[in-house]
Nucleic acid binder design. Structure first.
Length: 552
RNA sequence: GCGCCCGUAGCUCAGCUGGAUAGAGCAACGGACUUCUAAUCCGUAGGCCGUAAGUUCGAAUCUUACCGGGCGCGCCA
């Protein structure tokens, strides 16, 4: 948050150096300011001397010394030091941090939200599982990542919509209809041969059973019965999916049906555009898309020689539709097994005249469930066989969501069910929630002791002089940068890691320092500190979608 | 065969788009509850960042080649 002060100091120093002829007038500074890993290196640090070294043909240390010399006149720093082989380290005055804390407390956690998007409209499409079976654990991970990413983007200056796409026009739904139909016949006493490529799950038999129980008017004609049962089954499964998602805390703004693409004529329009531009061409009786024009990938078929569209065609149309709904940026969240599909879709948005940066992909790697130290199921892809519902019922929503957010989305996730269920110090969810409960408890005790909680807003923050207190302040305000990085890079997991780090500082402080004491002024400002901290913890947990207990 | 992702402490993982002596948590060991919640804290130990070159002031991070694991490469959906 105070980075801009450092930025100005550096720019001023360069300006001074130019004026006094120490550097050429046309020099253009190129540098970064970072928070050093080591606390001893100050609050911020810059590498400017290294980037200037080749230009000025001098040693970095000397350049750093020269610039630091010009900076000494600054009033916002305790120290500006040259360290290592040429870093310039800045230590800002404590009062700046104390003042910033007071600001954050007064204006609320929102004042720490960075504006990354500038009002940009973003559509995040995720889960998008076909209603042919219940959501498995991999879908759950995608749901958590998508939902939290949406929250993050929303808070950082984007207008966000969440969408679930359903392939209701394809063969999978027909297969579901046939599966249900055969189970239906089975249950009504007919001998049937259940083919291998039909859906094997028990839920199909249950659905068929329900159709019988509820005395649904299943048509006598087999073909009609299949499509009737396809309708019934997919609707019922979709209801179940929405229920699972709801219980998981994930809600969509829109469910988009593939069939509407055909009804609205946008598929035809897509093909027309592609043909007009010569990006679609005929060969062997099929219509092809010239992927190779945009990406390192082979050309792909749009219309098969039997006249049927491929899924690729409706996917292009779908993305055209998204852009037509005036979204500036699209985010597609897919299972990583679909990564091979990315080049052609990326090519297609370029064919439609958009920048390739307008479509971003997030890949969700497989989840391996671990129980008693061993992977659940026969395969490492056990996630395929365990439903979200089962895990949700077993470990609860909080642990489930948090665990999904504890890894980069494109990295394999080992989900330790025993750990997630533990209400102990090994479980990071409780570690964070416990910090909040402790703070709440302190506030309750303060109120009981007659401390005027309204008055803490005016507390004198200059009393917060302990090393731990200043570090806590810095970590609280760092929320700004974490949100920014998380938003810019589309990496929700950063929030989870930040929260663990943040409350770690708090727990440590708590064990060492008493907040409520006889010195009322000191008590007030420490409560102010905890108030701001509580705000960030709540905000962060809210972002992840984990509950915020007042007591534990 | 080609392409994408991953390889960091015994285990699970971070590492802020190239920075300083590579960090957490768990497991191991040793400590701290008559004091705001011990679901916590403090300390010790643990490393050739898969391997080998390259790029430069500087590489876990970028390039290339190998090794090992995962996943994709259809006029399938």
């Amino acid at each position: 948050m105070l980075r801009k002060i450092v930025t100005k100091i550096i720019h001023d120093a360069i300006e001074d150096a130019r004026n006094s002829g120490l550097v050429p007038p046309d020099i253009k500074p190129n540098f970064i300011i970072e928070i050093p890993r080591e606390e001893g290196f100050g609050d911020y640090s810059t590498n400017i001397a290294f980037t200037l070294a080749p230009v000025l043909k001098k040693k970095p240390v000397d350049i750093a010394g020269m610039l630091a010399g010009l900076m000494k006149k600054s009033t916002s720093c305790n120290s500006i030091e040259v360290a290592g082989s040429g870093f310039i380290n800045f230590s800002l005055k404590d009062e700046l941090w104390q003042q910033l804390l007071a600001d954050v407390h007064r204006k609320g956690t929102e004042s720490l939200y960075p504006d990354v998007g500038g009002g940009k409209k973003v559509l995040i499409e995720f889960v998008s599982a076909n209603p042919t079976g219940p959501l498995h654990i991999g879908h759950g991970r995608g749901a958590a990542v998508g939902d939290v990413l949406a929250n993050i983007l929303q808070k950082t200056g984007h207008f966000v919509q969440k969408e679930y796409y359903i392939n209701d026009a394809g063969r999978q739904i027909k297969t579901l209809g046939r599966s249900t139909f055969l189970r239906f016949k089975e249950l009504t006493g007919d001998a049937v041969e259940y083919e291998k490529d039909l859906y094997q799950g028990d839920y199909v038999r249950e659905l068929a059973g329900r159709a019988i129980e509820e005395k649904l008017p299943v048509p006598a004609d087999p073909e009609e019965a299949v499509s009737f049962l396809a309708q019934f089954a997919s609707r019922a499964i979709m209801d179940g999916i929405e229920k699972d998602l709801g219980d998981f805390g994930v809600f969509f703004d829109n469910f988009f049906l593939e069939s509407t693409l055909y009804a609205s004529g946008i598929v035809d329009e897509t093909l027309r555009i592609l043909k007009q531009q010569g990006i679609a061409y005929e060969n062997d009786g099929a219509l092809w898309f010239k992927t190779s024009l945009f990406e390192k990938d082979e050309d792909r078929v749009l219309i098969k020689s039997d006249g049927e569209n491929t899924y690729f065609t409706s996917d292009i149309a779908y993305h055209l539709d998204k852009f037509k709904r005036s979204f500036d940026m699209l985010v597609d969240i897919w299972g990583s097994d679909h990564h091979g599909y990315i080049p052609r879709l990326r090519a297609s948005v370029q064919a439609l005249g958009r920048n390739k940066e307008d479509l971003k992909f997030l890949l969700i790697q497989f989840v391996t469930l671990i129980k008693e130290g061993k992977p659940v199921g026969m395969s490492t892809r056990s996630g395929e066989f365990t439903t979200l519902r089962e895990v949700l019922d077993e470990v609860g929503r909080d642990a489930c969501r948090f665990f999904f957010l504890m890894r980069k989305s494109d990295a394999h996730l080992e989900f330790d069910l025993d750990l997630a269920r533990k209400t102990s110090n090994e479980n990071p969810v409780y570690y964070i929630q416990y910090a909040h409960a402790r703070i709440e408890s302190i506030f309750r005790n303060a109120a009981d002791a007659g401390v005027d909680l309204e008055a803490i807003a005016g507390a004198d923050c200059s009393l917060l002089v302990l090393k731990e207190e200043l570090e806590l302040i810095k970590w609280i305000t760092r929320y700004h940068g974490v949100l920014e990085g998380s938003s810019r890079n589309l990496e929700p997991h950063r929030i989870a890691f930040y929260l663990i780090e943040l409350v770690g500082r708090f727990h440590s402080y708590y064990n060492k320092t008493r907040v409520l004491g006889t010195d009322i002024e000191l008590t007030r400002c420490r409560l102010l500190l905890l108030g701001a901290l509580r705000g960030v913890i709540r905000d962060g947990l809210g972002l992840i979608g984990v509950s915020i207990p007042e007591r534990m």
